[in-house]
Simulated scan of single mutants.
Amino acid sequence: MATISELKAVLKDTLEKRGTLGQIKARIRGEVFNALDDQSEPRPPLSRENLLINELIREYLEFNKYKYAASVLTAESGQPEVPLDRDFLVKELNVVEDPNSRSVPLLYGIVAQLLLSDREEKARQTFPGSSSLQLSRWNFGKAANQRRPMAAVSELARLEDPSIFQGIPR
C-alpha cells in the first residue's frame, strides 16, 4: 500500500505533466491578490502610454493563455476590464500590419521587427554602401504609409534565432 508521501508525489507529478499545477498556483496567487487588494483606495489615472503598454502586455498574456496573470495585471493596473480594440491599438501605435501579423499579438510583431532592424543595421555596418542589399530600417518616427508592414510571421523565419518565438504559429 502506498504511503501518503508517495501519493502526494504521484499527484504532484501528474498535475505537473498535465500543466495544471502551474495554472492552480497562478489562480491561487490571483485570488490572494484580489483578497488583499484594497478596492477602496483609488488607483492613479493611467497615462496614455501606460494604457497602451498594458494593453500590449494583456494581449500577449491572453494569447499565451496566461489568463490569471492577465487578470492580475488588469486588477492591479486599473486597466479597463474590456480590452481595447486591436484596430484602435494599431492606429494609436501607428503600426502597419500585413495579414500574417494579425494572427499574433502586436508585441510579437514589434519585437520581431526590432530584431530584424537590428540584424539589418549590422548588415549595413558589415557591407557599407552596398546597393545590392535592399535594407530598410523600421522607424517609429516615419508615417505609417512610409513604413514597411510588420510581417511578423514571415520575417521571423528569416531571423538568425527564431527559437525565441517558438510559440508563434507559422
Rank of each mutant, 00 (worst) to 15 (best):
N64F: 14
K65F: 11
Y66R: 09
K67G: 14
K67N: 13
Y68H: 09
A70F: 04
S71T: 02
V72K: 08
T74Q: 12
A75Q: 07
S77R: 02
G78P: 00
Q79M: 12
P80Q: 07
P83Q: 03
V90R: 04
L93Q: 04
L93T: 02
N94V: 06
V96A: 13
V96T: 05
E97R: 04
D98Q: 00
P99Q: 03
P99N: 04
P99A: 06
R102V: 02
V104N: 09
L107G: 08
I110E: 12
A112P: 02
A112E: 12
Q113N: 12
L114C: 11
L116T: 04
R119T: 07
R124L: 14
P128I: 00
P128N: 06
S131I: 01
L135F: 10
R137D: 14
W138G: 10
W138N: 12
W138Q: 15
F140T: 13
A143C: 07
A143S: 10
A143M: 08
A143W: 05
R147K: 11
P149C: 06
M150A: 06
A152P: 02
E155R: 05
L156A: 06
R158L: 09
R158Q: 08
R158M: 07
R158F: 04
L159Q: 06
S163V: 03
S163R: 06
Q166T: 10
